[in-house]
Amino acid sequence: MKVDFEVNGRAVSVDVTPRMTLADCLRHELNLTGTHIGCEHGVCGACTVIVNGDAVRSCLMLAVQAKGAEVTTVEGLSLEEGLTPLQEAFKRHHGLQCGFCTPGMLTTLHALLSEEPEASEERIRDVISGNLCRCTGYIPIIEAAMDARAAYQQARGDK
């Protein structure tokens, strides 16, 4: 089936089978391998992407269901060069080790902080409870997110 949607601001048209998940479509059809697959049953959060502004698990969404949607992956959150304030905060706080869960953490937090730049530590922790990390113990990830809030608050103020 042909499905047209937008990924990271770019219009794409992909031929998919109904059973192809959005995660597999992004990775293997569109070569956006920054989106990682850690469980394929909707628990680990590594495959989180942003669809029409909402963080979703791309292993629980079919590629055909992306028709007409705007999809943002970790690649789409990144600058041409350098790191965004959220990425910088992860680096500064050592919010990643093996890097496998990291794209899902970044997309989830980007969706959250874009909508709720004043999110409390408790709220951030609660949201991130849907993303598994085996390396860091999460504490530095929460610190990084708290640190990155200022940039999202500023971005909202600038609008």
């Binding site: 690649e75 990144s78 790191l83 680096k91 890097g99």
Partner: peptide
């Protein structure tokens, strides 16, 4: 390492 991991450019 972080630069590539944070930009989704790690290669697993």
């Amino acid at each position: 390492e972080d630069y590539r991991f944070l930009r989704g450019e790690g290669q697993y």
